[in-house]
Design a protein around this nucleic acid. Sequence first.
RNA 1: GCGGGCGUGAUGGAAUGGUAGACAUACCAGACUUAAAAUCUGUUGGGCGUAUGCCCGUGUGGGUUCGACUCCCACCGCCCGCACCA
Length: 851
Amino acid sequence: MTDAPTGYDTANIEAKWQKAWDEAELFRAERSDAPKYYVLEMFPYPSGRIHIGHVRNYTMGDVIARYKMASGFNVLHPMGWDAFGMPAENAAMASGGHPKEWTYNNIDVMRGQMKPLGLSIDWSREFATCDPEYYGQQQALFLDMLDKGLVYRKPAIVNWDPVDMTVLANEQVIDGKGWRSGAEVERKELTQWAFAISSMAEDLLDSLGDLKDWPEKVRLMQENWIGKSRGLQMTFALSQPAHGHDGIEIYTTRPDTLRGASFIALAPEHPLAKALASENADLAAFNADVRKGGTTEEALEKAEKRGFDTGLTVENPLGGTLPIWVANFVLMDYGTGAIFGCPAHDQRDLDFARKYDLSVTDTFVALNDGTPVAGTAFVPPKTEKVLWIDQPAGVEEATGQEAIDATIDWAEARGLGTGKTQYRLRDWGLSRQRYWGCPIPVVHCDACGVVPEKKENLPVELPDDVTFDVPGNPLDRHPTWRDVNCPSCGKPARRETDTMDTFVDSSWYYARFTAPHAQTPTNMDDATYWMNVDQYIGGVEHAILHLLYSRFFARAMNETGHLPASAREPFNALFTQGMVTHAIFQTRDDKGRAVYHLPEDVDLDTRTVKATGETIEIIPSAKMSKSKKNVVDPQDIIASYGADTARWFVLSDSPPERDVEWTASGAEATHKHLRRVHRLATDVARADRPANAADADLAKATARAIQEVTDGIEGFAFNKSVAKLYEFTNTLHKSDAGAEARRGAIKVLAQLMSPMTPHLAEEIWSMMGGEGFVLSAPWPVADPALLVDDSVTLPIQINGKKRSEIVVPKDMPKAEIEALVLQDEAVQRILEGGQPKKLIVVPGRIVNVVV
RNA sequence: GCGGGCGUGAUGGAAUGGUAGACAUACCAGACUUAAAAUCUGUUGGGCGUAUGCCCGUGUGGGUUCGACUCCCACCGCCCGCACCA
């Protein structure tokens, strides 16, 4: 925006400084003797255009990067593209283009949108995961992991669309039906490649304790996801052997409820269930029926609990027999694929028992004999003491955990079973039956089996001549690519046509940034110097999968010699930022359906649609979505207000970890403020007032501003830093201090603003005759002497409510404060000559009088 | 269904056991102006009151504490994740 009267011409100012930074190669990262600092924001998927949420994410990283540069660190701040994935194939299917073309075009557009933001990124390190140079090294990594036994093949269950004859992603399954065909999806077993992440479960769990600078909630989520539990594995003898089985091995985390067992339940995929189904058409039909629907845990959990009575029984070591059912809620993946059900103390088992009329036996009751709620299983926390009924291990009054431990000991002593530690974490299936991903570098040979591709033949490149006119993986029907000779025996063989999960691409990109063009996955010297990522920033939606996979990969890369041991835990500090939201403006059509309107088409004062005068409904703080017409395009903001306004706005108001709502009025107000700062600097540059008594006050305010803004940045509370900068600007504006003092203060203001609004900061810095770039000037340090006040204001509370306050010297003894408080007018009025019940003095903070 | 998080004026938020509402937006009033915009100054949680002041108030209900937005328990609402969306 050209702004002639004040001279705050963002287009010129921002272009000028971006050019100057480029020419000085300020952001190019080279190894040096200086302490390093690696800032990384989760790299974007090249979906087409950047949105304001990206701006917020990268601005946060930029604030840290620039602050660390000014604090003397050698900063690495790279950027790349998470470029493989389904949307590119979907676009190709929809409009006939090629995923490669679509992806690289998007990258060009998005890079073009990002550069005007003035981010301190070392663009020389940029790469996309779909560059053969990158995925070739990923294939090398895969082969090394194969060598170490960290990758193997195993059966895995996928969503199968029986009409399109293709595997579907979870998001392509809508209400249990295929998104294109509408056919009911089935769960189908395929042989797939898997990473042995569960072999590192214990390490991944243990090390969470060392991640001090990770949000507690993320560590908790990962802990629960890994799901370590100690339980009992035991075998129930079959009353009559069947299909070569003479017992059912079960796993339970609640062996203490054995007395209340009323049935055994098998997963439909359990070997015995499958064997029985082979000669029982009804069971086969049941198994086929419960296989319908998607594979997500959510779908399985929400599905109606159903069972099939096999008619078989097992012997209960506590006496009697238990019927064996096949049940859809038992997972073959977890434990042994068989459980015993205890309806009295598990809601799911109770629902099942009610439905099929199975017995319900209490194992324990509450100590305070609280009335049990009808139809509800009694499931107290494992730490709560309860009263046990005929507990086989002999406990009477004990917690669930004590009873579990006792029962495991009891079972082990009698040879009934063994205590076993189990993890919920499953191995990571990485095969995808799709084109636009990193090819898995192996060949299937009839004679030699699975043969790894030779490293000198890497990268195994994706062929360009593919079409997407029929469902399924084009690699599968591409004979010249697919049909190769065996690397081992040379006979005709078949290339693996599955590609890798895109989570693989993003599990090691942080390491690749340390040497993006090395001929091996990493370069040890570079990796050792730059790793770990000192500050990682991204959305909380990645709290579990991406972060856990990355932690696994760092360990695997260490074990295959691609990362030092010090980088096994790759992210020192993690910050999860919130979204940028925007109001939705909607009206209803005559059928009551929502009709959405663009912000520029509505009049907010009258709350109407400009063209038609209809009254709008405003839904605040909604996630941005093209279809709801509430997406804010950063390019528009930069064009009208400049990058600094966009950057300042996304940092202000909301704490970084929370969502922030974009409002047009907020952006306008931010711009006004920056214009005010620019004008203030222009005025101060010309002023010639002599030094005077106000100089000292300004010096104090400056010291406080340095302290508080720095604390805000260090504590990732950019909104507070912004608030303090507003305050300091207002103080500076009103200050009567002399010209020299004001020029000094405004130079500090420029420095403090430089991480957030770097262009304006450089402009002011140069206006004030600052040397070099403001970015290169050492970060200001507050003079401690200016930060302390000689006296403090103590609020006086009476019964916890503030009634008065006194000003006392900073280190006045307690007794003297007490005496002063008792003389206080408000206190005397309440006391009416009497004595307080209690007088609490918290030095330097508060006084509370209890009457 | 399971795991995790969040909830404070008209609005975004500050205060993380010690003055609830910093800072900003919006609104209102004033200055400047022929006028408007821009700019500057000031007021603003609700209620009662001329006023010193008093009462109420941080999703709801209970609890711990001299003192609770903050800690504990239960509930309500919204958001994130649930292993093939990235």
